[in-house]
Design a protein around this nucleic acid. Structure first.
Lengths: 222, 222
DNA sequence: GTCCTTTCGATTTTCGAAAATCTGCGAGGA
DNA sequence: TCCTCGCAGATTTTCGAAAATCGAAAGGAC
């Protein structure tokens, strides 16, 4: 009935903690190698340790933090080899998923992707990295979602999750974000034309570009 | 000093709970669709709820249990379409991983795989499904492990984890287990010869056989 | 008879504190 | 000087109980 009242009912505190930690990771509050102090997080969220711990257990499975028993959780550090491997896996799985999904994309689905693309533009203009990351995901997964690919998408999502921290790093460069927008246009075109080969090629070059930028960020950052 | 006493010192209680839950899943104590009562598990392990919850959060990420906020955890149910999709993904990723690892396998690595194969035989003879599952994993991952494939293996492990419950189901049939042993011999031969094409083909037929048996178990079980 | 509300026991979720373990530092000895 | 040992504070891990929520049964109202 009342949208403003019922809005404040998403899930558990643990889920809230997962989201908060994700934000901390993408905003740079937590950087690769940092130790994650449970009490600190709990205090910042105004909760006890239990939900924080559950959230960390989840993020550990996603590869965003690394767990050392009785020593705590640390923000996962990836080197260029890790990123390359993950991007190769993504290439393999995403091309396959995109080719399967493309013929099944109806006007509705394309519409949603289009909206996601626009949200990307908006987020870039507003300089909102978090919103950009979210809309970017919506864009890419919108192209892949199709019946019978749930597990494939779960795996791809895992790969995205484990590199989210680093993706956020290069999105801080404005020119990278603008270039991503243009790539999205080309991808969108190919999707609208239902041209699988072109779509695959555009997605590949989009990924390759991202990897290249990551390399730059990583080598100069160190 | 005392091996029986000092044996109980691997990790945290939460990790212990993960293993216990895995055992319950593969032994059939917990079947697909079952609700997992936290208190029940905690009582069985003689612990409080916190470690159980953490364990469940981990298994949820692996896909072995499904979480419904404020309603609890349920053992994940997979249908034939799910299993087919997961096996296709495995085929894609494992062939790639095997081809990359094969040239890098040294005598030591092959030795470890050989031992795993023997442990499989032993477990089959002893009728120990849990030991068979463990040795079987050691066998297959021993062929894939190689530098620069950590993330690939992480993904493959995820795919194995999410079907572990079902793999345990068909390993209850003795003829399936003996057939697996023979397949392992052929796979081992190909690996020793460093014949990538033959290895890939043998792995593929091993997987296809497993999927076929799963189909039988699933259709008659229902 | 059907639909809606109320209530109760069961279960999940969160808390706050106790217990266990780790890290860093400084004293004592080679 | 370098190393080992052991203590003190910080941090993680686990516990036991309180709070919140859910599902189902019971009780009306129409």
């Amino acid at each position: 009935m009342n949208p403003t009242v019922s809005a404040a009912r998403p899930g558990t505190i643990a889920q809230h903690a997962v989201e908060a930690l994700r934000r901390a990771l993408t905003s740079g509050e937590l950087s690769p190698g940092d130790k994650v102090r449970q009490e600190e997080i709990a205090a910042a969220l105004g909760t006890s340790l239990s939900p924080v711990r559950e959230a960390l257990a989840i993020l550990e499975q996603e590869g965003q933090v690394t767990y050392l028993p009785r020593r705590g959780y640390y923000v996962t550090e990836l080197d260029m080899d890790d990123l390359r491997e993950i991007y190769e896996l993504r290439a393999l799985l995403e091309e396959r998923a995109a080719r399967r999904a493309l013929p099944l994309l109806d006007e509705d689905a394309l519409e949603r992707v289009e909206i996601a693309a626009r949200d990307c533009v908006e987020a870039v203009d507003g300089g909102d990295v978090a919103a950009e990351l979210e809309a970017n995901r919506r864009f890419h997964f919108g192209l892949l979602e199709s019946p019978g690919q749930n597990h494939t998408l779960r795996v791809i999502r895992l790969l995205w999750d484990s590199t989210e921290t680093y993706r956020a790093m290069y999105y801080n460069a404005p020119e990278a974000r603008h270039e991503a927008i243009e790539a999205h246009d080309r991808i969108m075109d190919a999707a609208r034309d239902h041209d699988a080969d072109r779509l695959a090629a555009e997605l590949e070059s989009h990924r390759a570009e991202a990897l290249l930028r990551l390399e730059r960020v990583l080598t100069e950052g160190r």
